[in-house]
Design a protein around this nucleic acid. Sequence first.
DNA 1: CCGAAATCGTCCCATAAACAACAAAACCCT
DNA 2: AGGGTTTTGTTGTTTATGGGACGATTTCGG
Lengths: 194, 194
Amino acid sequence: MSEVVKTDRRILRTKQAITTAFLELFAKKDFEQITINEIADRANVNRGTVYLHFSDKYELLDKCMESHIQELISLCQSQDTGPIQPGVIRDPKPFFDYVQEHYAFLSALFSNQRAFVFRDRLLHYIASSLTAKLERPDRAIDKEVNAQFMASAFIGVVEWWIRHQMPHSTKYMADQVHHLFSHSQGSPPADTRN
Amino acid sequence: MSEVVKTDRRILRTKQAITTAFLELFAKKDFEQITINEIADRANVNRGTVYLHFSDKYELLDKCMESHIQELISLCQSQDTGPIQPGVIRDPKPFFDYVQEHYAFLSALFSNQRAFVFRDRLLHYIASSLTAKLERPDRAIDKEVNAQFMASAFIGVVEWWIRHQMPHSTKYMADQVHHLFSHSQGSPPADTRN
DNA sequence: CCGAAATCGTCCCATAAACAACAAAACCCT
DNA sequence: AGGGTTTTGTTGTTTATGGGACGATTTCGG
């Protein structure tokens, strides 16, 4: 049916080179200080070529965030089989592992104004995914509110972990999240209804 | 004077991609099993493009060895200042560090027939460099033989270290070499003259 | 041993990217 | 402020590479 036109390999390589170069720079210096010249130079790419794929460095950053978000989302989805246990994310360890692996970029991201985009997009996905899956026998508690509550909690923990330079192992964090989730699952904060 | 025509960036990137892809494959599977298809695929490069730069995988391997040899040689030369102490290589640690850094390739190389080229080229450089520098008050001992002796010893130790999966730290190895050299410096094997 | 599949080496043509030059902004430094 | 430098977008031309196809080996399974 829909013809899958596979993109030119040069495009893939070039995009990859530019992205990698940008990520390396982003991890080490302030975003605003980064110039297109620098990126092109490091990527071994002509400056014009950068403009061929990205309108400016802001879009470049957006694309990077987007790809990380997609990666994290598919990481969550890969576990979406069988009955849900203590949240959408049955085992949060792969999630933490991924964050740890891309720590350089993510920590830099969270010291940037634009991090909120990243945070919000991820939060939104997890929340809506939770809303669909959650089963609330308790009629007094709004399903969506609960989802938002849990999603925010999870993202909050991840963000804290990043901002504090990963003070614990991914295993430890995963266990913590697991415990926290299974405890709060049936008992959200008492005063939520006010 | 001589115009330095800097090569097209695409060439640099492509060569780099091909080389890296090859190195990764070489580190993980038998050289003879590696196909041009595989290399091109992994490098995200058209198969024809590989032939544009390398006549075959043998030349590709040669070029890789060559670059490592050049790197190691320049590593030695960077220390070539002042009077020689216990050999050409005053501090062998950088040498071991480099080997450790490229262990994946080098260990694969030494389980390959073609490793002898690498070994010989490096040995030859060190030996001839030693010959030029060595000062032998003892007329009974041939300068060149001595150089060969020391160079072989050094390369032999390095090779052993690689083949035994780097059982000691680079620091430890460097110290060992240092001690061995300063001891053997004036006293080569007793029966060399026969 | 044979036939299918994979790899090889080489070609042509289309095109992504390099290069160079440009004016306009943005950034400095004093 | 203001002159010199760097960065920015954008443009034309040239070139290296991609895609695809070719017959000739080579590899491999039955």
